[in-house]
């Protein structure tokens, strides 16, 4: 009896997590193209989980981990714009449309819609973005590019900096998931 229980427990725990894919070293970059200068930053400490069974996803982006071309840009980004002392992370979570088409048993490319709540600089917004899911040898990768407007998240860019910082920022996401 005891053995059966333990086996059942172990199995159920395994089964519940079987379709989860996760990473702690996902890459998010952003690009701002403005008259005076282009600004680019890269972050490869992004955490993410995809639950293919429950059709849920989550991304957690530590703001301080964005690396810029200049140390001073990084300081301004954190101190003046994102106020990362107060809002240390950006978050995006919700559900996926089209994930049922993803077949983990064979290599392929799938278009999936990620719809949910983005929280940035303490401001939450509902967004929906297209992304490509790649299955390679049973491994799952995700790639997407989308635009965000700092003003939507109450990130203020003073008039004197509007020639330096774009009003629309291009965000690129690359995730290599491992089965959890």
């Amino acid at each position: 009896m005891k053995k059966i229980f333990l086996t059942a427990l172990t199995l159920s725990a395994f089964w519940a997590q079987a379709q989860q894919f996760a990473t702690r070293s996902g890459e998010v970059t952003f690009f701002s193209k403005a008259a005076v200068e282009n600004i680019e930053a890269i972050n490869n400490q992004v955490s993410s989980v995809l639950d293919l069974e429950k059709n849920q996803f989550a991304f957690l982006v530590p703001i301080k981990a964005f690396v810029f071309e200049k140390a001073l840009m990084q300081e301004h980004f954190n101190e003046n714009y994102m106020e990362s002392g107060e809002f240390p992370t950006a978050k995006f979570s919700g559900s996926m449309e089209g994930i049922e088409n993803v077949d983990l048993t064979k290599d392929g490319k799938y278009e999936v819609v990620f719809a949910g709540t983005m929280t940035l600089h303490g401001v939450s917004k509902s967004i929906s973005e297209n992304a490509t899911i790649l299955v390679e040898n049973g491994k799952v990768k995700l790639m997407t590019k989308f635009n965000i407007k700092p003003a939507d998240y109450k990130v203020e860019i003073p008039n004197s900096k509007q020639k330096n910082i774009a009003s629309t920022i291009e965000v690129s996401v690359k995730m290599n998931y491992e089965k959890k």
Binding site: R24, S47, K54, Q56, A58, L60, E79, S93
Partner: peptide, 23 residues
């Protein structure tokens, strides 16, 4: 725990990471 929000799970995993003060 499986029903718990994935985001909460991620936040829980990373909550102990050291945050350095700057500027």
């Amino acid at each position: 725990s499986a029903q718990n929000d994935l985001l909460a799970e991620l936040e829980d995993e990373t909550k102990d990471e050291t945050q350095y003060t700057f500027a």
